[in-house]
Amino acid sequence: MQAFVKTLTGKTITLEVEPSDTIENVKAKIQDKEGIPPDQQRLIFAGKQLEDGRTLSDYNIQKESTLHLVLR
């Protein structure tokens, strides 16, 4: 499924993900596309910070959801 990641600069990245993907996995995909190390990434969805060990389905993130990427 497709999900979108919006950065603070307003850029939107499109990712191909599965509901079973972990947040860690998603961060690795963002690193592949953008070169941002996962340890600098914080992903926010519905106002919550997403934890590495959880999956997209844990957070009820469905296709075409938009996550927000904040860098630390």
Rank of each mutant, 00 (worst) to 15 (best):
residue 1 M to T: 04
residue 1 M to G: 04
residue 2 Q to R: 15
residue 2 Q to Y: 14
residue 2 Q to M: 13
residue 3 A to Y: 10
residue 3 A to K: 01
residue 3 A to R: 02
residue 3 A to L: 15
residue 3 A to G: 03
residue 3 A to Q: 05
residue 3 A to T: 12
residue 4 F to H: 12
residue 4 F to I: 11
residue 4 F to R: 07
residue 4 F to N: 06
residue 4 F to K: 07
residue 5 V to R: 00
residue 5 V to W: 02
residue 6 K to D: 05
residue 6 K to H: 14
residue 6 K to P: 02
residue 6 K to N: 06
residue 6 K to F: 06
residue 7 T to L: 15
residue 7 T to Q: 06
residue 7 T to W: 11
residue 7 T to Y: 13
residue 8 L to D: 13
residue 8 L to Y: 13
residue 8 L to M: 14
residue 8 L to R: 12
residue 8 L to G: 13
residue 8 L to H: 14
residue 8 L to A: 14
residue 9 T to Q: 13
residue 9 T to V: 08
residue 9 T to D: 14
residue 9 T to G: 13
residue 10 G to D: 04
residue 10 G to E: 03
residue 10 G to L: 03
residue 10 G to S: 04
residue 11 K to R: 11
residue 11 K to L: 11
residue 11 K to E: 08
residue 11 K to Y: 13
residue 11 K to W: 08
residue 11 K to H: 12
residue 11 K to M: 10
residue 12 T to M: 12
residue 12 T to C: 12
residue 12 T to A: 04
residue 12 T to W: 10
residue 12 T to G: 03
residue 12 T to R: 07
residue 12 T to Q: 07
residue 13 I to N: 01
residue 13 I to R: 01
residue 13 I to M: 05
residue 13 I to W: 05
residue 13 I to Q: 01
residue 13 I to G: 00
residue 13 I to F: 11
residue 13 I to V: 06
residue 14 T to I: 14
residue 14 T to E: 09
residue 15 L to I: 13
residue 15 L to S: 00
residue 15 L to P: 00
residue 15 L to E: 00
residue 15 L to G: 00
residue 16 E to V: 12
residue 16 E to D: 11
residue 16 E to T: 13
residue 17 V to R: 00
residue 17 V to Y: 04
residue 17 V to S: 01
residue 17 V to D: 00
residue 18 E to P: 02
residue 18 E to H: 15
residue 18 E to M: 15
residue 19 P to Y: 09
residue 19 P to N: 06
residue 19 P to F: 09
residue 19 P to W: 08
residue 20 S to C: 10
residue 20 S to I: 06
residue 20 S to E: 10
residue 21 D to I: 05
residue 21 D to V: 03
residue 21 D to A: 06
residue 22 T to E: 03
residue 22 T to P: 05
residue 23 I to K: 00
residue 23 I to D: 00
residue 23 I to P: 02
residue 23 I to F: 02
residue 24 E to W: 15
residue 24 E to R: 15
residue 24 E to Q: 13
residue 24 E to M: 14
residue 24 E to I: 11
residue 25 N to M: 15
residue 25 N to A: 14
residue 25 N to Y: 11
residue 25 N to P: 00
residue 26 V to K: 00
residue 26 V to L: 10
residue 26 V to Y: 00
residue 26 V to W: 00
residue 26 V to G: 00
residue 26 V to R: 00
residue 26 V to Q: 00
residue 26 V to T: 03
residue 27 K to L: 04
residue 27 K to R: 05
residue 27 K to E: 01
residue 27 K to I: 03
residue 27 K to N: 00
residue 27 K to D: 00
residue 28 A to S: 11
residue 28 A to L: 14
residue 28 A to T: 09
residue 29 K to I: 06
residue 29 K to Y: 07
residue 30 I to L: 07
residue 30 I to K: 00
residue 30 I to R: 00
residue 30 I to A: 01
residue 31 Q to A: 13
residue 31 Q to R: 12
residue 31 Q to L: 10
residue 31 Q to I: 02
residue 31 Q to H: 14
residue 31 Q to E: 10
residue 31 Q to T: 10
residue 32 D to A: 14
residue 32 D to T: 11
residue 32 D to C: 08
residue 32 D to L: 13
residue 33 K to T: 08
residue 33 K to E: 07
residue 33 K to W: 07
residue 34 E to T: 15
residue 34 E to W: 15
residue 34 E to Y: 07
residue 34 E to D: 05
residue 34 E to L: 15
residue 35 G to P: 03
residue 35 G to A: 05
residue 35 G to S: 06
residue 35 G to W: 03
residue 35 G to H: 06
residue 36 I to R: 02
residue 36 I to Y: 14
residue 36 I to V: 08
residue 36 I to H: 09
residue 36 I to A: 03
residue 36 I to S: 04
residue 36 I to K: 02
residue 36 I to L: 06
residue 37 P to F: 05
residue 37 P to G: 05
residue 38 P to A: 15
residue 38 P to D: 04
residue 38 P to T: 14
residue 38 P to E: 07
residue 38 P to N: 06
residue 38 P to R: 13
residue 39 D to P: 07
residue 39 D to V: 10
residue 39 D to G: 11
residue 39 D to K: 10
residue 39 D to E: 14
residue 39 D to Y: 13
residue 40 Q to P: 02
residue 40 Q to L: 11
residue 40 Q to T: 08
residue 40 Q to F: 09
residue 40 Q to Y: 10
residue 41 Q to V: 09
residue 41 Q to D: 01
residue 41 Q to T: 04
residue 41 Q to E: 01
residue 42 R to H: 13
residue 42 R to Y: 14
residue 42 R to E: 13
residue 43 L to K: 00
residue 43 L to E: 00
residue 43 L to C: 01
residue 43 L to I: 09
residue 44 I to K: 05
residue 44 I to F: 15
residue 44 I to C: 12
residue 44 I to G: 03
residue 44 I to V: 09
residue 44 I to L: 11
residue 45 F to Q: 03
residue 45 F to D: 01
residue 45 F to P: 01
residue 46 A to D: 14
residue 46 A to Y: 09
residue 46 A to I: 06
residue 47 G to Q: 04
residue 47 G to W: 04
residue 47 G to L: 03
residue 47 G to T: 04
residue 47 G to K: 04
residue 48 K to M: 14
residue 48 K to G: 06
residue 48 K to Y: 10
residue 48 K to W: 07
residue 48 K to L: 12
residue 48 K to V: 14
residue 49 Q to E: 15
residue 49 Q to G: 06
residue 49 Q to P: 11
residue 49 Q to T: 15
residue 49 Q to L: 15
residue 50 L to A: 02
residue 50 L to C: 04
residue 50 L to H: 00
residue 50 L to Q: 01
residue 50 L to T: 03
residue 51 E to Q: 11
residue 51 E to Y: 08
residue 51 E to V: 09
residue 51 E to I: 09
residue 51 E to N: 07
residue 51 E to A: 08
residue 51 E to K: 09
residue 51 E to M: 11
residue 52 D to K: 04
residue 52 D to H: 06
residue 52 D to C: 05
residue 52 D to P: 06
residue 53 G to R: 09
residue 53 G to Q: 11
residue 53 G to M: 09
residue 53 G to L: 08
residue 54 R to K: 14
residue 54 R to L: 12
residue 54 R to I: 05
residue 54 R to H: 13
residue 54 R to M: 13
residue 55 T to I: 07
residue 55 T to F: 07
residue 55 T to S: 08
residue 55 T to Q: 07
residue 55 T to E: 03
residue 56 L to M: 05
residue 56 L to S: 00
residue 56 L to Q: 00
residue 56 L to K: 00
residue 57 S to Q: 13
residue 57 S to G: 11
residue 57 S to K: 12
residue 58 D to K: 02
residue 58 D to A: 05
residue 58 D to S: 13
residue 58 D to P: 00
residue 58 D to E: 10
residue 59 Y to Q: 03
residue 59 Y to P: 01
residue 59 Y to F: 04
residue 59 Y to D: 01
residue 59 Y to C: 02
residue 59 Y to M: 03
residue 59 Y to N: 02
residue 61 I to T: 04
residue 61 I to A: 03
residue 61 I to D: 03
residue 61 I to C: 03
residue 61 I to M: 06
residue 61 I to N: 02
residue 62 Q to W: 09
residue 62 Q to I: 13
residue 62 Q to F: 11
residue 62 Q to M: 12
residue 63 K to M: 11
residue 63 K to A: 15
residue 63 K to Q: 13
residue 63 K to P: 15
residue 63 K to S: 15
residue 63 K to H: 15
residue 63 K to D: 15
residue 63 K to L: 08
residue 64 E to L: 09
residue 64 E to A: 08
residue 64 E to D: 15
residue 65 S to K: 06
residue 65 S to D: 13
residue 65 S to C: 07
residue 65 S to R: 06
residue 65 S to L: 08
residue 66 T to F: 08
residue 66 T to D: 05
residue 66 T to N: 06
residue 66 T to L: 10
residue 66 T to V: 14
residue 66 T to P: 06
residue 67 L to D: 01
residue 67 L to A: 02
residue 67 L to Y: 03
residue 67 L to G: 01
residue 67 L to S: 01
residue 67 L to V: 07
residue 68 H to I: 15
residue 68 H to P: 02
residue 68 H to L: 15
residue 68 H to M: 12
residue 69 L to I: 07
residue 69 L to M: 08
residue 69 L to N: 00
residue 69 L to R: 00
residue 69 L to G: 01
residue 69 L to K: 00
residue 70 V to G: 05
residue 70 V to K: 08
residue 70 V to L: 13
residue 70 V to W: 10
residue 70 V to F: 14
residue 70 V to Q: 10
residue 70 V to Y: 13
residue 70 V to D: 08
residue 71 L to K: 07
residue 71 L to G: 07
residue 71 L to H: 07
residue 71 L to W: 08
residue 71 L to C: 07
residue 71 L to S: 08
residue 71 L to R: 08
residue 72 R to F: 11
residue 72 R to E: 13
residue 72 R to N: 13
residue 72 R to S: 13
residue 72 R to K: 14
residue 72 R to P: 12
residue 72 R to L: 14
residue 72 R to T: 14
